[in-house]
Amino acid sequence: MLAPILVLFLVAALLEYRSLKIQKRYREIISSVILLAAGLTLGILRLLHVEIPSPMSGIKTLFQPISHLLTRLLYI
């Protein structure tokens, strides 16, 4: 299901770039293209079943100790 959605986003972005090019907004086009490329790469990696690390797991390892500490403090 992801593949057609990636194409959909690509087409929508290309349509937008066409009008931006007429207005000569090159800075906007470049930053948007870089982000779009990152998104497409992520999508393709996911289609190829490559494991992508979740940002949530980093947050969990960082903040789990505080959470445990506070829970233990309040329950005793």
């Binding site: 986003f9 800075r27 906007e28 930053s31 982000l35 779009l36 992520l42 996911r46 992508i52």
Partner: peptide, 22 residues
């Protein structure tokens, strides 16, 4: 950027993929 709107589509695309692996 002067106009923030061109960022909408790429950011949403990244969010769509990330939402499935978060």
């Amino acid at each position: 950027l002067q106009d923030p709107r061109p960022l909408l589509i790429p950011l949403s695309l990244i969010a769509l993929v990330m939402a499935n692996i978060i």
